[in-house]
Computed example of a mutant assay.
Amino acid sequence: MDQALVATLGSFDGIHRGHQQLFVRMQAFARKLGGRTLVLTFDPHPAELLRPEAAPPHLLPLAENMAYIYAAGVDEVEVELFTRELAARTAGEYLRHLATDYGVTHLFLGYDHRFGSDGRQLSPEEYEALAADCGITLLRDVALLYGDERPISSSAIRRAITEGAMEEARELLGRPHSCSGVVVSGQRLGRRLGFPTANLQRLDPLQLLPPAGVYACRVYSLPGSTHFVPERGGMLYLGSRPTLGGDLEPSIEVHLFDFDAEIYGAELRVELLSRLAPERRFASLDELKTALSVYADETRAYLAAHP
């Protein structure tokens, strides 16, 4: 008898606690069958092709999503190119594809997940019947709830981040929201003010950023970075730099505490822990320097209280 292959599919952006629960349950199920697990995800996000004007910003770059999926213990991750031809497949056709091309025997789905060009018209029972016709047993996970009994979802996390509620986003994700980027040269104003910064250019320009302001953060080197930066607490500024006349593109600048080295080209992941102050315009650079000292003290105090 062929080995069972227990699969799930979806965009899985952010790999939040609901996703993690799904992966844990499908792995436990696969172990009982002596089988393997497979996660199928898509690039680009389906909405970017079908409804680009309404496509959500990314919570994580694709490579980091995949890394978190593997870290959850899944045996295999496949990224399918999402095309209009793929989008046109009915649920039955896609299930046949899973059975024939991947050998899927069991399919775990999120509590409300639908797929296929006809998916909106299908009931859960109809999905199960279509799967059975292809030799696939379909199973539904239950929603993981939080707070006022709302399900954890990528849209709820995006709302929290958009509002600057980084602690809520951390609760839903199971870890802090992060932004990854490469260190590029800047104007060196921070160094002149006594607060040298690493200026980050995002690796994923479509990744969601919180509102402008000052944030407590922790910084890590990404695997394979050209420079290794030891884990550090830091103070992050995100915004248009109105004191300097304003920028069209948001600036992401990180002051790493107790660290001063040239790290141009380093690839960093910055965890945004808490928004400590909104963006504001200062009357002078001296006033900005004084504010930076205050922000640095507040950030160190936050990091000490939240190790």
Rank of each mutant, 00 (worst) to 15 (best):
D260W: 10
F29E: 13
R175F: 15
Q20K: 12
E249P: 00
L139A: 12
L189F: 05
E168R: 14
G186R: 13
S185T: 09
A87I: 10
L50G: 11
R36Y: 02
H97M: 03
Y68T: 06
V74Q: 11
Y102W: 07
R188P: 02
D247W: 10
A87F: 08
R280T: 15
P211L: 08
A88W: 06
E168M: 10
R140K: 14
D258T: 07
A165H: 12
L238Q: 03
A99H: 05
A131I: 09
V142W: 11
A88G: 12
H58D: 04
E48N: 04
V214L: 08
H227G: 05
I136D: 05
L86T: 14
A87P: 03
T37L: 00
A305C: 00
Y70G: 12
G186W: 12
G35W: 08
A28I: 01
D75Q: 09
H45C: 11
P151S: 07
S284W: 13
E271H: 15
N199Q: 07
M166N: 00
S153C: 03
Y264M: 06
V104A: 04
L33M: 11
E76L: 11
E163G: 03
A88N: 11
L203H: 10
R170I: 08
P205E: 10
R84W: 08
K32F: 03
L40H: 02
A54K: 15
A30R: 00
R96P: 00
L268C: 00
G213D: 13
H19R: 05
T105E: 05
V104T: 05
G239A: 07
L203Q: 15
R241E: 11
A296V: 05
G265A: 00
T83N: 10
A63N: 03
A54S: 14
F195S: 04
T197V: 06
S153A: 14
V24Q: 14
D260V: 09
L268N: 00
H113Q: 12
G35Y: 07
G164P: 00
V77L: 04
E267D: 02
V77D: 02
L208E: 13
L107G: 07
L222Q: 14
L208C: 13
A277F: 12
T83V: 09
D118V: 06
V74H: 09
P52E: 08
C134D: 04
A54W: 09
Y70P: 02
H19A: 06
P44M: 10
V24L: 12
S180N: 07
Y146H: 15
T41A: 10
G35H: 07
L86F: 13
L203N: 13
L62M: 15
S221C: 05
V77G: 00
